[in-house]
Design a protein around this nucleic acid. Structure first.
Length: 116
DNA sequence: CTGTTGACTTAGG
DNA sequence: ACCTAAGCCAACA
């Protein structure tokens, strides 16, 4: 017996949830002292070109999440937050705590970018 | 269903 | 090096 309605109802939600989980897993895999770009993580999670989606996920991340969100920066080596904002300060502090130094609001990607 | 939004990216000027 | 425009994707009104 075929129940198309049942089968196509449960698919999409599970798929989206799985994609988020995979993204979180990828972010959690970033080693300490290294950073990754949004687009890079999107590609590793199987969503090429979905850099903005990664940003959306991080923005909607639980406050008490243990994910190393601070290791996620833009492809140009700058933090996604504008300088002089709370988020910027928090992220910069966590990065420097791990040994990632910022030079004039930028990170040396050639040195710190994570290469799996 | 169409339009907007955003912790992005790339290509030109 | 900085700014702009267009492309990109998922979520939301």
């Amino acid at each position: 017996m075929k129940d198309p309605q049942q089968q196509k109802q449960k698919q999409p939600q599970d798929q989206q949830l799985l994609l988020r989980q995979q993204l979180y897993q990828t972010i959690a895999a970033i080693p300490m002292g290294k950073v990754a770009s949004y687009g890079q993580l999107a590609a590793l999670a199987g969503q090429v070109g979905a850099a903005r989606w990664v940003g959306w996920c991080l923005r909607h991340l639980p406050k008490d999440s243990s994910l190393p969100w601070h290791r996620v920066i833009t492809a140009s080596g700058k933090l996604a937050f504008p300088p002089a904002t709370a988020g910027y300060v928090r992220q910069r502090q966590k990065l420097e705590q791990e040994g990632v130094r910022l030079h004039n609001h930028k990170v040396d990607m050639q040195q710190y970018q994570w290469r799996p």
